[in-house]
Computed example of a mutant assay.
Amino acid sequence: MTSASQSNSARSESFARQEREALAGLLLSQGPSAPTLCEGWQTRDMAVHLYLREHRPDAAAGMFLPPVKSHLECVTSTLEKRPYEELVEGFRQGPPKWNPIRLADSFVNLSENFIHHEDVRRGGGERVAPRELPAEMRAELWRVVQQASRVMVRADGVLVVFEAVDANPDSSAASPERHICGAKQGDEVRISGPVGELLLWVFGREDAAEVEISEDKPGAQKRISRRSI
């Protein structure tokens, strides 16, 4: 790994830890019964998910593999009986050393922790303004948007153009950073906004994300969907 790559990875890992700490603190301050942006989930459900994902990968596999789903449900039911504060503090400590996900902290956990932090921040139903994020963190999240959108976004004959107005110090609404995914050609849909808001949109939080969407043909936006993960 080059020194530049090592530096980027270290920054991402640091931001992931910052988001983890902030999310854990918010979960404790909100208590176990607060609403979140995740449909049907209160903060206790969020705490169970976060803990399980990092401490019980055998069960977390059930999120993606149907044969393991019953095991996931069994472990989830058991964790729901544990003290809320214990689950949150377990998440705050990060994945155990034996869990390979620890090695992916600079990418997977940055986006996971950021998104779920916003799920709790904005879960009350009232508009909550986007946070002011450090420039280096915005650059890392922009890389996540570019990579995740290729997997998450499904576009039926639609060219999807993401425009980040704050991806780097030189970007703005007049000259945003751009990323294209979806169909190689077809009707165009532009999704513009701050990087963090674009990430929330990619991961299905469109009702809460502060983005502007324009389409060059009526109905084009309706042909875009996101994968459920």
Results as ranks from 00 to 15, higher is better:
P169F: 07
V128G: 12
S33Y: 11
S214W: 02
R11I: 04
D105K: 02
D105M: 01
E118K: 03
M46L: 15
A60C: 03
A24M: 02
E197N: 05
G157M: 11
M46Y: 04
A34T: 14
A139W: 03
K69D: 05
L28E: 12
V160D: 02
H49N: 02
N168Y: 09
R17Q: 09
S3F: 06
A4E: 15
S77T: 13
R53C: 00
V48H: 07
V75H: 01
H49F: 06
L27A: 04
A104H: 01
P32L: 14
Q42F: 11
V48E: 06
Q42K: 15
E136D: 15
R122G: 10
R227C: 09
E118N: 11
S29N: 12
R44E: 13
R143F: 01
L141P: 10
Y51T: 13
V161P: 11
Y84I: 14
E197V: 01
Q6I: 10
A34F: 14
V161H: 06
V153M: 13
D156W: 12
H116G: 05
M1S: 12
A59I: 00
N113A: 09
S33R: 14
N113R: 05
Q147Y: 14
V202M: 05
S175L: 13
S70D: 14
K97F: 09
A47S: 11
L200A: 09
L159P: 02
V211P: 08
D187R: 12
V158Q: 03
K222D: 14
T76I: 03
L28H: 07
T78V: 11
A24C: 07
S3V: 12
G31P: 15
E21S: 09
A183K: 06
T78F: 07
E39T: 10
H71E: 01
I224R: 03
R205G: 07
V120D: 11
A173T: 07
R150N: 13
H179W: 14
T78K: 12
E118G: 09
R121D: 10
